[in-house]
Design a protein around this nucleic acid. Structure first.
Lengths: 205, 205
DNA sequence: TCGGAAACATACTCTGTGTATGTTCGTATA
DNA sequence: TATACGAACATACACAGAGTATGTTTCCGA
């Protein structure tokens, strides 16, 4: 497939990867507008020249970081689902839980849910999610409907709503102070389960 | 209460109001980062000096715009709810529907849901919503639980979720192309009703 | 071994924010 | 009614950061 890399290519890919890593940290910590490319470059002992060699502009750098974390997320979610090859319900549960887990992480949560919509524009962000998180959720929802675990609601809209549901829960959790985190997470799981159709049994009379 | 305004005060308030209006348009159309104060000032035949006289900085201007649209929204929602003084369920329905309506409007939707979290920072945005949309929803949810129309779920978390639910639906609707808008809106109402507890009857067997 | 191109660094331009200072004009006070 | 004062702006300047143009080094293939 891809032949052996020359030393130069290896160096180049290394700095590119280092730039992505540094940028991810900066963007996640200070936001898109709050990060100067100067600082990103300095983090890896380089100058902005290196950045503009590898990426067309600031937005392109962000886009690369964004697609990176999305790909990582997708892999983890697929792994989680693959642990239940015989039970679609359990697989869906695991997938959604893992996605929520990802959203809780400061880097993924902030990048994907806070910065991406303004850095890339809502339109592009929405289109991108089609290929990542949202696409995955849509498949899950479709399965759940086919299996009868969900009523035949409009798939796309329902999936998009679930997507936002998990995302907002995740980002809220990511910013919840440590002492409350466990309780809030439990509350969100209760609410999410309710919204996805589970009904609590009547209180013991 | 407030004594009669001098001519000077009237002029000042007029330009301040004009600045807010121009800024709202610019922010809603080009986003926070994409708006230059120069242009906002030019829109009302003034210079940036006027802006910086009335507002501490760009963020403060945005904050003022933001609080303005939130207040307008709250008024409209309260009016909608007040139309059903005898039926809390209907009042809650009307309130939520009106809120969704507001979220669909490009100015409110974009400012509150896209720009505010990054312009003000998620923390401040969350805190502000406590006093506006979210506070209102919380009251509604609390009522619905007391009346028994909702099970006793954790109020704060549930309200916050509903808040995001309506917001994401609204902003998505705001960006949906006209021919599809009616259908998508209908789909969202279906999904929202489902998530809020209504269960469709079984298909005729 | 040498020409060229990739991988950067350096230097410059331009836009936009924030600030410091100047100017006008209404208004209170003598 | 003359004047002093301060609010309401305008003008001018400093500075940061994005984007671009150009220079420099070093690897690699012919």
């Amino acid at each position: 497939m891809s032949r052996v890399k020359s030393r130069r290519e290896q160096y180049s890919e290394a700095t590119r990867a280092a730039l992505l890593e540094a940028a991810a940290r900066r963007f996640a910590e200070h936001g898109f507008a709050g990060t100067a490319l100067e600082d990103v470059a300095a983090d890896i002992q380089a100058t902005r020249g290196a950045v503009y060699h590898h990426f067309a502009n600031k937005t392109a750098l962000f886009r690369a970081v964004y697609e990176d974390v999305e790909t990582t997320m997708l892999t983890r979610v697929k792994e989680a689902a693959a642990a239940h090859p015989d039970d679609v319900g359990a697989a869906a549960d695991a997938a959604l839980a893992m996605f929520l887990e990802c959203c809780c992480e400061p880097v993924y949560g902030r990048l994907v849910w806070q910065e991406a919509p303004v850095a890339l524009g809502w339109q592009e962000w929405k289109a991108s999610e089609e290929r990542y998180a949202f696409g995955m959720i849509e498949a899950t929802v479709r399965t759940l409907i086919e299996v009868g675990k969900l009523p035949p609601l409009p798939v796309i809209t329902f999936a998009r709503t679930v997507f936002h549901l998990l995302g907002s829960a995740g980002i809220d959790l990511a910013l919840t102070a440590e002492p409350d985190k466990a309780r809030v997470k439990d509350e969100y799981l209760q609410v999410l389960r309710y919204m996805l159709g589970e009904r609590p049994g009547p209180a013991t009379p």
